[in-house]
Each structure stands twice: as structure tokens, then as C-alpha cells.
Simulated assay, not measured.
Amino acid sequence: MELRQLKTFATIAKLGSFVQAADKLGYAQSTITNHIRIFENEMGVRLFERLGHRVILTDQGKSLLPYAEQVIKLTSEMTKIVANPDIPQGTLTIGTNESLGTYRLPELLQEYRRVYMEVEIILKFVNCDAICDDIRQNKIDVGVIINNKVWEKDIIVEDISREQMLFLAASNHPLAKKKRVKTSDLVETCVILTEPGCSYRSTIQKIFEDLRIIPQSILEASSIETIKQLIMHGLGISMLPRFTVEKELNEGRIYTIGWDEPIPNYAVQVLYHKDKWISPTLNAFLNMMRNSYWDVESKNKIRR
């Protein structure tokens, strides 16, 4: 089959008329009829019922129409890309974690869509432990994570900003009232952890293991918003990036625990495969990330 036959088929299905389809496509009616005859012979089915002046799709025609439309659409997109190789277009698939996808990326993606309206953006929440494998399998074009420095031979990693991590509690939590919280104080509290595979969880667990701390109890939640609610209801303490709780800190609903041990700061990092073709679409996103305001903002907050 040929593309012109698919276009003829889809146009007749839309207009319900051979005559109108011939006029729209600029063909003679005999050419339109020949396109459909050849297509029907190749498919081995009747595509249209001709009832008087009406042309109606058969059941087989209805089944084939979505596929024909998809082929026409993809061919059109392919032609555009070839005709405009330097213009961002097509699809960009971004893998990130919940905190960045909720608090950091929306504003940047809004600006990206404003400038590059032809690009379809797919945002996937990916566990930090799985991000590199998804990049290797080409499930995502680029990853944006907050974590300790990632070192992988086949993955290019660019630091975007440093982010301050905080131990947090409700305003009425016993630890929030202490000027300095000692290691022994953590034994008497509940610790709220993110889901397995999340960088925040592994950091807290390493801190506790290194200091040989066994908390009184543990709560686990997969959502940052849920963790914040658990903290504010006094159910335990947790560790999160400052930017996820900025609003609650300003309102006094969540307090920073004055712990007397160092808390590691994380880096927001952009990851992509070393052999990945840096298309105009991907390159435009990388440049926006590199020029984001986060770095200055995060440095100022860490300095305070």
C-alpha cells in the first residue's frame, strides 16, 4: 500500500463522499476510486458500503481507520523533523523523582512549553535507584534527580544545584523545642521514611547505622505530601530537602531540628547516556536546566 492510498481512505471516511474527497485531494474521481480498489484488494476486505449517494465505512474499514490515521500522522511528523532538523519538536521523556517533579520542574517545564510549543513532554516519576537503567534502556531521554553524586561510566552527569537537607519535626514535637538535639534523643522518636530506593531514605538509614541508632519506631510513606502531613501531626521526624517544606517552615507548621551532627547536602543532577543523540529538543531542555535560577537560590539558603 502507499501513503496516498491511506490519505484517500481517511479523507473519504471523514467526508463520506468520493466526490468531495477527490475535490479536497485534487484528484480525478477515477483516481480516488482506483486508490480504494487497490487498497481493498491488498487488504482483502471491503472498506466502504455505497448506499445511493452515501458512503459508509464497513466494520473492517472502521477497524483500519485508526491505523491509517496514525501512519499519516507519524509520516507528517517525520517530514517536519527532516524539513526542520534544528527546531525542537517531537517528544521529550523526562524521568525524575516526586520532590523535583512537584516543587522544582513545573515552572521550568511551563517556560519550556511556552518557547517550544511543538514538543510533547512526558514526565515520569522514577525511583532514584532505577533512573540509570531507564536511561540505558532508552525508556527516558533524560533524568533529573536529587541525590549524592552519581558516578556511572556510561552516564553523563551534570550538577545543577546544591540543595540543603533538613531534619524536620512538628512545632509541638519534643525535639523541636530543643536548641541542640543529641544522637541519643533520636532513639526516643519515630522516624518517617520514604519508600525503598529513594535517596532520602538511604541517607537517613546510613546516618542511623553509622551512629548505631535504633529509633523507637518507623513509619513509611511513598509521598512527600503524606510525609509532611505525618510530620505536622506530630507522628515523627523525617529528613527532606528544604525546598519541599519552604512554605510550611515560613508558616511555622514545621520546624527544623537543631541536630548536632552534620547533615549531607544533595545535588540536583541531570543525567543522560553518553551515546545519546543530543537532539535540538533535548539540547534546549539541558540548556534551560543549566541556566535555571536554582543554583543561586540554593546557595543563598544554605549560606543562611
Rank of each mutant, 00 (worst) to 15 (best):
L6I: 12
I12R: 06
I12P: 01
G16T: 05
F18N: 11
V19K: 12
Q20F: 12
L25Y: 09
G26P: 02
G26R: 08
Q29H: 06
T31N: 01
T33P: 00
I38W: 00
F39T: 01
F48E: 04
R50A: 02
G52H: 03
V55R: 02
I56E: 03
L65N: 03
E69I: 09
T79I: 13
A83V: 06
P85I: 12
T91V: 11
T91F: 05
L92P: 03
G95K: 04
R113S: 04
K124W: 13
K124H: 14
F125L: 14
V126C: 04
C128R: 12
D133K: 14
I135W: 03
R136I: 10
D141E: 10
I145S: 05
V150F: 06
D154T: 13
F167A: 05
A169Q: 02
N172V: 05
K177D: 01
V187N: 05
V187T: 14
V187M: 13
Y200W: 11
T203A: 07
F208V: 08
L219I: 15
I224A: 09
L235T: 02
R242A: 10
L249K: 08
E251Y: 07
Y255S: 09
I257C: 10
Y266P: 00
Y266S: 05
V270R: 04
H273R: 15
W277E: 09
S279P: 06
L286E: 06
N287T: 12
M289R: 00
S292H: 03
D295T: 04
V296H: 04
K299A: 04
K299D: 10
K301G: 00
I302G: 05
R303V: 07
R303S: 11
